[in-house]
Amino acid sequence: MLKIHNVSKAFKNNDKSVNVLENINLFVEKQEILSLVGQSGCGKSTLLRIISGLEKASSGHVKLYDEIITKPSSSIAMVFQDPRLMPWLNVFDNIKLSILNDNKETQKFKINNTLKKVGLENAGDLWPRQLSGGMAQRVAIARALVQEPKVLLLDEPFSALDSFTKTNLHEHVKDLWSSLKITIVMVTHDINEATGMSDRILVLQKPVKNKISKNEIIKINQPRSSYKNDEYNELIKNCIFKTNNIQTAAFI
């Protein structure tokens, strides 16, 4: 349903043009969970932002079904790495931001429903400053889910959380995914997260001059079981090792 076609992106940094993404091609199936992994700075967030419509590709395009994405739309929701809640709005109103055009009744119904789903049914009146990190992140996820998007983009939304909250939220997202039948593209630094949650993993490489970089895709067999994680771990590391000779131990 999501088609990424020959997407490249160059940024101008101090008059120097830096290629961040080069000719990315990818097809994401409906209801698939796809993880993006790769070194810091290899363009994962940039790719996600291009899919969301926040950023324009230098060349190539992204299509949702048959429509080229040019600007943010309500079919695609995004959760940033930091929760990005408006400090001046309480939890309820923060979530309301993504469904401002609905009428009041619908808003109330949807928001209370979503709050329940992320386990925050009593937090509607709280200010962001009164939330824990995990709660704030769940509010951010609720804000993305309440608009019932077709595609959910997650940019390392769990990376700042402790492993307990993380596991909890993984379960949440999986539940929501199976009940809402959405497609998820997720950036992560955590291989267990990638192998545990996704159908496929795209390993992004930094473009190297005069070299065609190869972005590998790893398919995770379903149903997953945890003992296989080590196997995948190796596989992903190999992927990155193959094209890059930089020490890789630290970056995932």
Binding site: S73, M86, L97, S98
Partner: peptide, 17 residues
């Protein structure tokens, strides 16, 4: 950016952000 990604129009951005 949050306003943008949630498709707030100009007046909504002024009002809520």
């Amino acid at each position: 950016e949050v306003a943008h990604i949630n498709n707030l129009n100009y007046f909504q951005t002024v009002r809520w952000v």
